[in-house]
């Protein structure tokens, strides 16, 4: 995964993306016990000039990766052996990204979405497997309850949150 993260950092250094953070299952894996998952979800924001456009255009990223020899598999691009999905961040995901935790993975700096935001994103998705992760996050990692409450409130997710805090 070190090489994959290096390439993603390269996208940021080359200004193809403005910023990114690891989300989804791999972000959950950072906080909870190991479980099976297959893809690496990366929330991204685009450079400001791209943001102004009405359409989200990811082709410069994919062109760059294609030139480096990376191939497609369904909706993923396989970067150094890992299927990566680039997800243009919506409002909640962008806030999650801006508040993400900076970590080092085998010496490579990267960012992982905080557990409170991760819970909100999972609650919003609301599938059974998402809610299972929420349950584990609440038990297996330290959660800032006030922060979580604020996020849930801000994004209208309080009613969907059926867990005991």
């Amino acid at each position: 995964m070190k090489k994959t993260l290096k390439i993603i950092n390269e996208l940021k250094n080359k200004n193809l993306i403005d910023d990114y953070a690891i989300g989804g299952g791999i972000a959950a894996l950072f906080y909870i016990e190991p479980f099976l998952t297959y893809d690496l979800d990366i929330f991204i924001t685009l450079p400001s000039k791209e943001k102004e456009k009405k359409l989200i255009v990811l082709s410069p990223i994919f062109d760059y990766l294609k030139k480096k020899g990376y191939s497609w598999k369904e909706e993923h691009i396989i970067v150094e052996g890992i299927p990566v999905q680039f997800i243009p961040a919506d409002e909640l995901e962008e806030e999650a990204m801006n508040n993400a935790k900076t970590i080092e993975y085998e010496g490579i700096e990267t960012k992982v979405v905080n557990p409170e935001y991760l819970i909100a994103i999972l609650i919003r998705a609301g599938r059974k497997k998402d809610l299972e992760k929420v349950e584990k996050l609440l038990v297996q990692t330290e959660i800032d309850k006030k922060k979580l409450n604020d996020i849930l409130h801000c994004y209208g997710l309080k009613k969907k949150f059926k867990f005991k805090l």
Partner: peptide, 27 residues
């Protein structure tokens, strides 16, 4: 059992990724 799961959750990220790849191989 609960304590065991909490300890697993505290494993280093790199170690968890190794376990994940092993799980993928098993599946």
């Amino acid at each position: 059992k609960e304590q065991f799961h909490k300890e697993q959750a505290k494993l280093p990220f790199e170690e968890k990724i190794k376990i994940l790849v092993n799980m993928q191989k098993i599946v």
